[in-house]
Nucleic acid binder design. Structure first.
Lengths: 254, 254
DNA sequence: TCAATCCTTATGTCCGGACAATCGGACTAC
DNA sequence: GTAGTCCGATTGTCCGGACATAAGGATTGA
């Protein structure tokens, strides 16, 4: 006797719009993701085989596979050869993204504000020149900012950028994040190298962040590269650990 | 007059072994990655179009695309429609992995050692029970370890695991990392939620880590899940910031 | 009763082709 | 000279099929 074979995707009302400019695999992936998010696809449930799903939607199997693969890459699904594709139990948040503190705070529901303390052109030190890939002594932008949320200082941010990349208007720096300015200038961010550590606050930092001297600070140094491999930014940030921590999700590499 | 059309992959001696059980796309990806690593493919150079590459290797275009895509996902290549596929300039290190401190130290050339301070079964507190998905008061393993490298303390690690998942032998805990034990027990790690912060050392921590009381410590809390969604481990770690920091690379999402 | 084997099922890999979208340069018109 | 247009090149998307491989259950044998 064959078992009932309840395919949870059968009752989901999945459909794709071939007239849309949105790729078919992407439409499907979005609908599946929404179904998982809303609990229509319960964790642990099998998805029903790809062939059938493709036939039901009038798609080819490669297209369905591409959709499923994108969700596997996101950590929402797990495939098992000979078994099927399964919804992962654990609730996934987004993995660590190449995002700015400003955006992080904004999505967390805070209303971040910035106070620009320094915005000037300075000659690059040897270390900085090496990191940014410019010649020593060449002009670089130096930006020092204090980031606040609800009037309380969150972080003290020191950034250096190669000169000539974009014009850094103090007003715009106060209104938004640095990453958004870079993107608006036509720079496509590609990757970043980060280092997260901790150290005691210097007296200057302590005063700006309203902490005691020697208080523990969470630190982050980051070099950001665009898709041509140029270093476009080097930042050294100090966060108040009582107000900020780095939360993220990791996925095992296949 | 047609331009020279120097395709750097033409002189690379790429070839695939159809008798091998390793997938063709994977063979190609490995060879391309090696070529990039060794500098045979210089940053910024175009790769030559997929059709030609496929023809030269006797492969189909989808297979070549799959190989290239895997390297794009790794951040080694960038594709541009209408232009071509380009080697990224910036040197990539590995992105942040789901790895244990033990493995991290080992690959960094250190010879880590562990000292197990506590290895016992304790009733789960309400918080811990919620995190691990067990009932409050149920038995859980509690493991406290001190991790050292070159005889110096690096981190103080407190981990909790659901009982019955695996037998935690103190000797084996001292000989290797917790993640390796989990994998050996047939548990396939899938994802983890992490939070990195900082705080001042308590007197007990200070003594174990040979720091002063109130010294800044780098902290990490992590819940690890297997591929069925079960929480398999919750860890609260404290690192000496002078000896350890979290270094990793981020890729922009698509 | 237990173990080895076969069979079903589902994903993994691979093919060859087709058309669309986009980029960049060359060309043309003003 | 400058702006708009056209066109070739290249990747993006999609199709329909084929066979291989692994996992799990059912069957068979000892």
């Amino acid at each position: 006797m064959p078992k009932p074979q309840v395919d949870p995707t059968a009752t989901l009302g999945l459909r794709v719009d071939r007239g849309s400019p949105v790729p078919l695999y992407f439409q499907l992936a979005q609908q599946l993701e929404a179904a998982i998010e809303q609990g229509a696809l319960t964790p642990g449930s099998l998805l029903g085989n790809e062939i059938e799903l493709a036939a039901r939607l009038g798609l080819s199997r490669p297209t369905v596979r591409q959709a499923i693969q994108s969700l596997v890459d996101k950590g929402l699904l797990v495939r098992r050869r000979g078994v099927g594709t399964q919804v992962v139990h654990s609730r996934v948040s987004r993995p660590l993204e190449l995002s700015s503190l400003y955006d992080d705070l904004e999505t967390a529901g805070q209303r971040p504000t910035s106070r620009v303390l320094v915005n000037a052109l300075v000659p690059a030190s040897a270390d900085l020149a090496g990191v940014l890939g410019v010649t020593e002594g060449a002009d670089v932008h130096r930006v020092e900012r204090l980031r606040l949320a609800h009037g309380e200082p969150i972080a003290y941010l020191v950034n250096h950028l190669p000169a000539g990349l974009l014009d850094l208007d103090t007003d715009r720096l106060e209104a938004t994040g640095l990453y958004r300015l870079l993107r608006c200038a036509g720079i496509t961010l590609h990757s970043a190298r980060q280092s997260i550590g901790a150290r005691a606050a210097t007296s200057a930092e302590a005063e700006r962040l309203e902490e005691a001297e020697g208080a523990p600070l969470l630190t982050m140094e980051r070099t950001t590269y665009d898709d041509t491999g140029r270093a476009v930014e080097f930042g050294a940030h100090a966060y108040r650990p009582s107000r900020y921590s780095f939360d993220f999700q990791l996925l095992a590499r296949s």
